[in-house]
């Protein structure tokens, strides 16, 4: 996908633009603002996994919104990154049902394995480790989300295998990925 976040002009690929137009059509005439969150997801995936001010301004112009309307939404929702992050963001659920099933041990293990603290990114830009709130996977705890995928019933061994797999694939994982 394009990575034109640092250039003066940014633009969606034709494919993404087509998708955006089909999303706008889901809402009544004049209500294209409804498409904002879905379009921000696409923008985040297209432009390096985060929403720069420039990306947000671009989305505003596409949807005929004021830039502030985009900023106030982008800052409200936890799935939007307002700063660059690692290619693979490991989001470990730490809420009670997962906590009862070893989420704290899993976080400690990943911190040690990756050599970073929760909230940090590895020096090679590959992994960001985060803790998040209940992901609706409490019956298969402990678990983490990376991009569109849920990894459940995790053990240290499964976490090792996952990290290895992600390193080999070496691609950015987005929520919008088709899995």
């Amino acid at each position: 996908m394009s990575s034109q976040n640092t250039q003066d002009k940014i633009a969606f690929s034709d494919e993404a633009l087509q998708l955006v137009n089909s999303i706008i059509k889901r809402y009544p005439e004049g209500k294209q603002k409804s498409a904002l969150i879905p379009v921000l997801h696409i923008a985040q995936a297209e432009f390096d996994g985060w929403l720069s001010p420039q990306t947000m301004d671009y989305v505003a112009s596409l949807l005929k919104l004021k830039p502030i309307e985009v900023y106030e939404v982008a800052t409200f929702y936890s799935m939007f990154n307002l700063k660059p992050a690692g290619k693979c963001i490991l989001e470990v659920c730490k809420t009670v049902p997962c906590w009862l099933n070893g989420a704290e041990d899993l976080v400690a293990y990943l911190e040690k394995k990756l050599g970073i603290k929760t909230g940090e990114t590895t020096a090679d830009g590959m992994f960001t480790l985060r803790t998040v709130e209940c992901l609706g996977s409490c019956g298969t705890a402990p678990m983490l989300q990376c991009g569109a995928s849920y990894y459940e019933n995790l053990t240290n061994e499964k976490a090792d295998a996952l990290i290895d797999k992600l390193r080999v694939e070496n691609t950015r994982k987005n929520y919008t990925d088709i899995i």
């Binding site: 889901r26 969150i37 921000l40 409200f76 929702y77 936890s78 799935m79 939007f80």
Partner: peptide
């Protein structure tokens, strides 16, 4: 239509 949120 399906409409996705963004974590909230």
């Amino acid at each position: 239509y399906v409409h996705v949120g963004a974590g909230a």
